[in-house]
């Protein structure tokens, strides 16, 4: 309870400083709008449907790209962890490409796919898949072999061994791989939406981009606020329950 009070006081103070600074008249309100004009923009965008539409489009792209990234990344991560040859080849490739910021995929995606949803998806998948491989691989390498040994003496083998022992044993690493992937997918999509301007859907990144084109600072800040809000909400809703479960069971911090 005390923590909630402290946190709300902090954010209220932040809003207070912002509104005093913007009201002081030292900076042009065009470049430095007050929190109230940003709120008014968000309210208007919410009522006329642009905001809901943008969130919907963004989430759809994110979920599709993220799902493809996981579908490729999780099995590949498990494979690289189980074979030295795959580790030296695919693992090394993943390690290299993971250092490439996802925005660097945009020029290539634009040339290959043009101004299409495909380009957008490509950037998200490329931004996600390598980090998922690395996180899963790293995790699976650290499963204590004693679990499989103990289970085998009790008569567990084959499918039973994989679903009842190896899968739950690797859960902490799968979750950290998925969380890593989510963070990367989200960043990649924002980069893609800002740079790939297409007409098939108008996402949050594009809202931000056109805010700049129109010099509408309230729109820019409003879109940024929404991106922060959705990013942290997704973290809460998607991963916190898992992490709490892991923390309770394993007694370790899953962070």
């Amino acid at each position: 309870m005390k923590r909630i009070v402290v946190a709300s006081l902090f954010f209220m103070a932040l809003l207070g400083i912002w509104s005093i600074a913007s009201g002081s008249g030292r900076w042009s309100p065009v470049l430095f709008p007050s929190p109230w004009s940003v709120a008014k923009y968000l309210q208007g965008a919410l009522l006329d449907g642009t905001l809901v539409e943008a969130i919907f489009v963004t989430m759809k792209r994110l979920l599709v790209g993220y799902a493809i990234g996981l579908l490729i990344g999780l099995p590949l991560g498990l494979l690289t962890s189980s074979s030295q040859m795959l580790e030296d080849t695919i693992g090394a490739l993943a390690l290299g490409l993971q250092t490439l910021p996802s925005v660097c995929w945009v020029p290539l995606a634009l040339l290959w796919f043009g101004q299409t949803e495909g380009a957008m998806l490509f950037v998200v998948v490329m931004g996600t898949v390598w980090s998922v491989i690395i996180a899963t691989d790293h995790g699976a390498c650290t499963i204590p072999p004693i679990y499989a040994r103990a289970a085998r003496t009790m008569g567990s083998q084959g499918l039973h061994l994989w679903t009842r022992v190896m899968l739950p044993a690797s859960l902490p690493f799968l979750v950290s791989g998925m969380k890593q992937g989510w963070a990367f997918a989200w960043r990649s999509l924002m980069a893609a939406e800002i740079y790939v301007t297409i007409l098939t859907g108008f996402g949050l990144g594009q809202l931000l981009h056109y805010g700049r084109e129109l010099q509408a600072m309230d729109q820019v800040i409003g879109a940024m606020a929404m991106i922060v809000l959705i990013g942290s909400l997704a973290d809460r809703i998607l991963f916190s329950p898992w992490e709490r479960f892991l923390h309770r069971r394993w007694g370790t911090n899953a962070e």
């Binding site: 004693i146 679990y147 003496t153 739950p168 044993a169 069971r249």
Partner: peptide, 13 residues
């Protein structure tokens, strides 16, 4: 033939 190992072999999940 069941084994009690030296290392903790209980399943944390």
């Amino acid at each position: 033939r069941l084994v009690v190992f030296q290392e903790p072999s209980l399943f944390p999940w």
